[in-house]
Design a protein around this nucleic acid. Structure first.
Length: 199
DNA sequence: CCCTGATTCGC
DNA sequence: GCGAATCAGG
């Protein structure tokens, strides 16, 4: 596989959406997450939230012994519309900038990635057996947060989303399924089974 | 152990 | 340019 314009476009889009490298690799197919990460870097968009970031390093840092040179030279210059990747990467300059490294914009919106998530257990009529099974499983749930979910953890929500008492099952999910064995049982019911339980 | 991105370096 | 191997971390 090669990086066609289309594939690169998909890569850019997903990366900007906050998708993980492995998720992108899977989507594209034919590449590993390493390939994706490598490409991301080559494209110069490793920084998902391209911050201007003050790294202009206007002056070649005082390389000699930094005696008593209280010259902080606070860069008041905006230098905002700078390129994501610095123009010419300086070799490397040790600079213990007095700058406090203020937190720019650590927004990290998109989290989940995947497929359809929210099932509605209460909305369905579940067989007593399956229900019992679920109750049992919920005791063992790993209580994962949204961010901790992966493609192989059960994404069955437990508790009330409006309260702190909310988490995801998190047990090992069935291969190819979004839920663990027990939850798959209540999530994917045969139509016939459903109808039989009809009121 | 599962996963994440970052970096290196032979190709 | 590419990406496997590796590193560093959660």
């Amino acid at each position: 596989m090669s990086w066609t314009d289309e594939r690169v476009e998909t890569l850019k889009r997903m990366w900007s959406e906050g998708q993980s490298a492995s998720a992108i690799a899977k989507e594209l197919g034919g590449v590993t997450r390493n390939a994706v990460i490598g490409k991301v870097h080559r494209l110069g968009l490793s920084n998902r939230t391209e911050e201007p970031e003050a790294t202009p390093a206007p002056e070649p840092v005082v390389k000699k012994e930094a005696e008593k040179k209280p010259a902080p030279a606070p860069k008041a210059a905006p230098a905002a519309a700078a390129e994501p990747a610095s123009a010419k990467p300086e070799p490397m300059a040790e600079q213990l900038a007095p700058q406090p490294v203020f937190t720019p914009t650590p927004r990290r919106p998109i989290v989940p990635a995947g497929q359809p998530l929210p099932p509605q257990p209460s909305a369905n009529e579940i067989s007593p057996e399956a229900l019992a099974s679920v109750r049992e499983v919920e005791k063992k749930s790993r209580k994962l947060t949204l961010m901790e979910l992966t493609e192989r953890t059960c994404k069955w929500p437990i508790g009330d989303p409006a309260t702190d008492k909310f988490w995801f099952c998190g047990l090992p999910s069935q291969p190819g399924k979004p839920y663990c064995e027990a939850h798959v049982g209540v999530a994917f019911q045969p139509m016939s089974s459903r109808r039989d339980r009809r009121r």
